[in-house]
């Protein structure tokens, strides 16, 4: 059964002018949001986007923008409480050496 979350919330945007059709975005998307048609990327299922930012970070020509963040309630609450960017503080600080 396919999971569906809230509609019309994703901040994903694609500039077709900049797109060179390399297909990296389609490759890294975990929810098949993007398809390559006529050698250009197309957003075909925006409501499935979870704003992970993989497409944006792997686009070599910066044609994609999305407000990437963790979709996690406790992260958002922590962000509100500490007045900072939401982050899931799931790691304790540990020394490297």
């Amino acid at each position: 059964m396919k999971h569906k979350y809230l509609k019309d919330v994703s901040t994903l945007e694609l500039s077709t002018d900049k797109c060179i059709g390399c297909g990296k975005c389609k490759e890294v998307c975990p929810h098949a949001v993007i398809e390559i048609e006529n050698r250009k990327a197309q957003i075909i299922d925006k409501n499935a986007c979870m704003e992970c930012g993989a497409c944006m970070n792997n686009c070599p020509v910066n044609a994609i923008s999305v407000h990437a963040g963790v979709g996690c309630v406790s992260a958002v609450i922590r962000g509100w409480l500490t007045n900072s960017e939401p982050s899931c503080d799931c790691s304790g600080g540990s020394d490297c050496c």
């Binding site: 999971h3 994703s10 979870m50 704003e51 963040g69 979709g71 309630v73 958002v76």
Partner: peptide, 17 residues
């Protein structure tokens, strides 16, 4: 549980909250 799920977006979670 949104934090454990594999498909919720940041904007969606914010709106829901």
């Amino acid at each position: 549980f949104t934090g454990s799920s594999t498909y919720t977006s940041f904007s969606g979670v914010l709106k829901e909250m």
